[in-house]
């Protein structure tokens, strides 16, 4: 089968990046709730029975040992803060927050400590850490396990925010995040973890702050975040049959944001639709719309349209949750609307 590209799921691409970086750099450690699993149990086979909520970290402890692969108690302020302190004193910790919805508990350690130490100390500290967390709706996990919330971390100076949408990017972006000298939120959309795609075996990096054009087009620019990239691509297929050429941009990192790629595209197409699974107020959709209004106003031939979740918590019932998540049909309607101007 010479020449056939190896494929991995996005989740396994993350696992491979973790293995390769822990092998390469002994200062990389990982900790979080149940990332090994079965700690303290006398049951045969208990150890490594979880490997994190999605099994991604299974196998790490066997290779790197308990000194570098640590189950934590359910103490988010304690272990996220410990990751900050460890990063400031010479390690490169990866802390697994499980679901992003839990950020409220360790938030002081994130935004008042980790994000600010460098600035407050006049540039004399660095905090090279990664916080991994699951984001997104679509698995009926209800209001406290389904949010996106990435706009909150994007808002905070000192933090970086990364969201991979392909297995290739997941591996390359995670390696970049681990090697980065600043605190990075690495956010994994639950419904993308099983997506399969080509992933080279050797370690490689995908730079932070560089967007990817997922589909080239000439009539409308659609900027889509996380799972909304797939929603936008589905919409683009439908619109192609109507003779509308859609360009789909995946920012890949929200902080730093590759505004240049977005603006270049808007200047080319003259139309902008933003698709964001997060809630609408003070959101990435709003931020990107403001960027285009500031910097590309005279290129615009139609109003900017934002397709977002409603200003509500995430509902549980499948019919309600489906109504909550932006759909390809909504994107198609928005594109038709801006094309009609």
């Amino acid at each position: 089968m010479m020449g056939e590209e190896r494929t991995l799921t996005l989740g396994l691409a993350i696992r491979e990046a973790l293995h390769q970086e822990m092998e390469r750099d002994p200062t990389v450690i990982i900790m979080g709730e149940d990332i090994v699993g079965g700690a303290g149990s006398d049951e045969p086979g208990a150890e490594d029975s979880w490997g994190g909520p999605m099994g991604i970290t299974r196998g790490l402890v066997g290779k790197f040992g308990h000194n570098r692969v640590r189950d934590t108690p359910i103490s988010e302020a304690g272990f996220i803060g410990a990751a900050v302190g460890a990063a400031a004193t010479g390690l490169r910790p990866i802390a697994a927050l499980m679901f992003i919805d839990f950020f409220g508990i360790p938030m002081d350690q994130i935004y008042n400590q980790g994000a600010k130490l460098r600035y407050m100390f006049g540039g004399k500290a660095k905090v090279p850490m990664v916080i991994r967390a699951l984001i997104g709706a679509g698995v009926n996990a209800a209001a406290q396990h389904s949010q996106s919330l990435y706009s909150i971390f994007t808002h905070i100076p000192g933090l970086k925010v990364v969201i991979p949408t392909t297995p290739y990017d997941a591996k390359g972006l995670l390696i970049s995040a681990i090697r980065d000298d600043d605190p990075v939120f690495f956010l994994e959309h639950k419904t993308l973890l099983g997506e399969r795609g080509p992933v080279p075996e050797e370690p490689y990096t995908v730079p932070l702050g560089v967007a990817e054009i997922r589909r080239e087009g000439s009539d409308v620019t659609v900027v889509a975040i996380a799972k909304m990239v797939n929603v936008a691509l589905s919409a683009a297929e439908i619109l192609e049959s109507e003779g509308v050429s859609v360009e789909v941009i995946d920012p890949r990192t929200l902080s730093p944001l590759d505004g240049g790629t977005i603006l270049d595209s808007v200047e080319k197409t003259g139309r902008l639709v933003i698709v964001d699974e997060d809630t609408p107020r003070c959101s990435l959709a709003t931020d990107i719309a403001a960027l285009a209004a500031d910097e590309a106003f005279y290129s615009l031939e139609a109003p900017i349209k934002r397709i977002t979740a409603p200003h509500t918590p995430v509902p549980f019932s499948p019919t309600l949750e489906n109504a909550y998540i932006p759909s390809p049909e909504q994107v198609v309607a928005a594109v038709r609307e801006v094309m009609a101007v």
């Binding site: 004193t89 010479g90 390690l91």
Partner: peptide, 25 residues
Amino acid sequence: MLGANGIVGGGVPLACGAALTAQVQ
């Protein structure tokens, strides 16, 4: 000196992290 701290109790987890570095290394 890992910093004075404007948040009461804010330094406790940070010290755990510094101690973690010491233990790992």
